[in-house]
Every structure is written in structure tokens, then in C-alpha cells.
């Protein structure tokens, strides 16, 4: 009896500490995440005014869906995402396949080199690329293209090339994380499989297609989904390099929401747009996990 009672007392003691340990996290979460999310719904049904907002029903959603700028921003965001994610997956997968069989210290050096640009802040990188994309013939990017006999471009200043410039910035820079993740996934593939393939006389490309790609599928899925979600939220490069322009050519959804909220102080419309954006990314994530995730378990 006493043992049972003691055990029950211990469990109750444990339960108390459990609540105490999660309490700070839960309080911070309720205050700075849960309440804002719920409030976003409320604000999205209002016409925001500093002294007393008025309820206007679905008006913000209606005007958002009928505004051509919203659809343009959505299109731009989709173009950016489609331009970013596959290219960056192919580049990082290719480099990882080359890097994975190398000696450990060689791998460490290259991983460090590829990871360095990831450390620099978005502000730092966008300032550097602003200078690289200098529109004059003396700009470094134009000079390099001049060697290939491509005429100078007004990279960030023309609505034809502005989005391309933002994409080039991603293509040429930001693969460190993906490469490290792919390399660790590749290291996890048992060597026996390759040995068997050797005995069977499989060629290099057969090994890639029949061993690596299928076994890397969970990693690829993970990187695709996180890649889509992050590129869908692209904001900093548009804000700092092009200001959404020229002629709204680089106005992404996140940038549109930002300007609606903090330039025009139209919080209602901005919240409605943010919620529509959240809906799209959620659908993407769910759809992808369903579509690609059917045989992910091993």
C-alpha cells in the first residue's frame, strides 16, 4: 500500500514539474504565436483604422482576389519558386554525388566552402549582389558576360531581367545546406549495394539511377517541400535589391503583404493576403507528402 501511494505521489510530483517545465514555452507561444494567428483571422475581416476598426466581412478577400496585382505577385512567386527549387536540387545533388566518395578531410573543406555564403545575412548578400549586378559595362557581371560576347544588361533595372537576376543570385550562391544534407544521406547508403552493383557490372549512371536516386527520395522530398515553403516566402532580396520593381516585375506575395501592411497600413487586406498565402503553402505541403510520400518508408 505504502509503495503504491509513494509511487502515485512521485507521479504527481513529476506531473507538476512537467507543467512547470513547459509553462514558459507555452506562455510565450500563446502570447506571440497563437494569439497573433487567431488575431490575423479577425483582422482579415476588418477595415483597419488606428482608432476602432470596422467589420467588413469578406471584403478584404474579395478585393484581394479581384486585384490584378495580387495575381501578378502570385505569378511572380510561382515563377521564382519554380526557377529556384528544381535547379538548386539538381546542382546540390550533382555536387553531393561527386563529393560523397571523397576522403573525409576533402569533404570537410568543400562543405565549409559551400556553407560560407549561407552564413552571411540576406542584407549582406543582397548588397554584394547589387554591386555585382551593376548596370554599367564596368559592372563585374556584365564584364564576365562581355567575355562571352553577351551585351551588357540593366540587370535589376529592367522588368525583363529583374526576376532572372534574383534567380541567378540563388543559382550561383545558396546550396550549402542542401549539399550537406544530401551528403549525409549518401553516406547512409550501405556500401554493399554498390559492391553488388559492381559484381553485376552496372555502369556509373545505372548506379546513380537505380541505387542513389530511389534511396535519396525521402531527402529529396524533404528538401523540395522546405525549398518550396522558403522560396514562397521570398521577401528580402525583393525588398533590398529591386523594391518589388521595376513595374512590379519582382513583387512577390511576401513583398506585397509587407507593403500593404507597413507602407499603406492596410492591415486587413495584408492579413487576408497572408492567410491566402498560408493556405497555398499548406496545400502544397500536404499534396506533396501525399503524392511523393507513398513509398517513403523503409
Amino acid at each position: 500500500m505504502t509503495i503504491l501511494r509513494k509511487r502515485r505521489a512521485l507521479r504527481r510530483e513529476d506531473e507538476k514539474w512537467g507543467y512547470l517545465f513547459v509553462a514558459p514555452a507555452v506562455i510565450l507561444f500563446l502570447l506571440f504565436t497563437a494569439y497573433p494567428v487567431l488575431n490575423a483571422f479577425r483582422v482579415s475581416f476588418q477595415k483597419y483604422r488606428p482608432l476602432g476598426s470596422t467589420f467588413i466581412g469578406l471584403q478584404n478577400y474579395k478585393s484581394t482576389l479581384s486585384s490584378s496585382l495580387f495575381w501578378k505577385a502570385l505569378w511572380n512567386t510561382v515563377v521564382y519558386t519554380v526557377g529556384c527549387v528544381p535547379v538548386s536540387l539538381v546542382i546540390s545533388l550533382g555536387l553531393s554525388i561527386l563529393l560523397a566518395p571523397m576522403r573525409k578531410w576533402v569533404q570537410t573543406i568543400f562543405k565549409a566552402a559551400y556553407y560560407l555564403p549561407v552564413l552571411a545575412s540576406g542584407v549582406t548578400l543582397s548588397i554584394v549582389w547589387l554591386w555585382i549586378f551593376s548596370p554599367f559595362e564596368t559592372g563585374i557581371f556584365n564584364q564576365i558576360l562581355g567575355v562571352l560576347h553577351i551585351p551588357s544588361q540593366n540587370w535589376l533595372g529592367s522588368s525583363k531581367t529583374a526576376m532572372l537576376s534574383l534567380l541567378i543570385m540563388v543559382w550561383l550562391g545558396n546550396h550549402g545546406k542542401n549539399i550537406i544534407i544530401y551528403c549525409s544521406a549518401l553516406a547512409g547508403i550501405p556500401n554493399d549495394l554498390y559492391e553488388v552493383a559492381d559484381i553485376e557490372g552496372a555502369s556509373y549512371f545505372v548506379k546513380i539511377r537505380c541505387i542513389m536516386l530511389p534511396l535519396l527520395k525521402p531527402t529529396t522530398l524533404f528538401l523540395t517541400v522546405t525549398g518550396i515553403i522558403t522560396s514562397f516566402q521570398v521577401f528580402q532580396s525583393a525588398y533590398l535589391m529591386t523594391g518589388g520593381g521595376p513595374n512590379h516585375a519582382t513583387t512577390t506575395i511576401a513583398y506585397l503583404i509587407f507593403t500593404n501592411a507597413f507602407t499603406y497600413f492596410d492591415f486587413g487586406a495584408a492579413c487576408a493576403q497572408a492567410l491566402l498565402m498560408a493556405l497555398i503553402t499548406t496545400v502544397f505541403a500536404v499534396f506533396q507528402f501525399k503524392f511523393m510520400g507513398s513509398d517513403v518508408e523503409y
Binding site: V26, A34, V43, A261, F262, C271
Partner: peptide
């Protein structure tokens, strides 16, 4: 530590990881 509601609380945290920052930013401001 096993305490009542821990699973629900943990799921709550997990789900909010999916919400884009744009939704939170304005009400938080």
C-alpha cells in the same frame, strides 16, 4: 515526463511550424 495534455500541447507547437511568418508578423506588430 508524462503529464496530461502533453501530446496535444506538443502537436500545437508542431502545427504552428507550418504557418508562414507573414501571417504572424502583422498581428505581432
Amino acid at each position: 515526463i508524462s503529464f496530461r495534455g502533453s501530446r496535444i500541447l506538443f502537436w500545437m507547437f508542431l502545427i504552428t511550424m507550418m504557418i508562414p511568418y507573414q501571417v504572424i508578423q502583422i498581428p505581432l506588430y
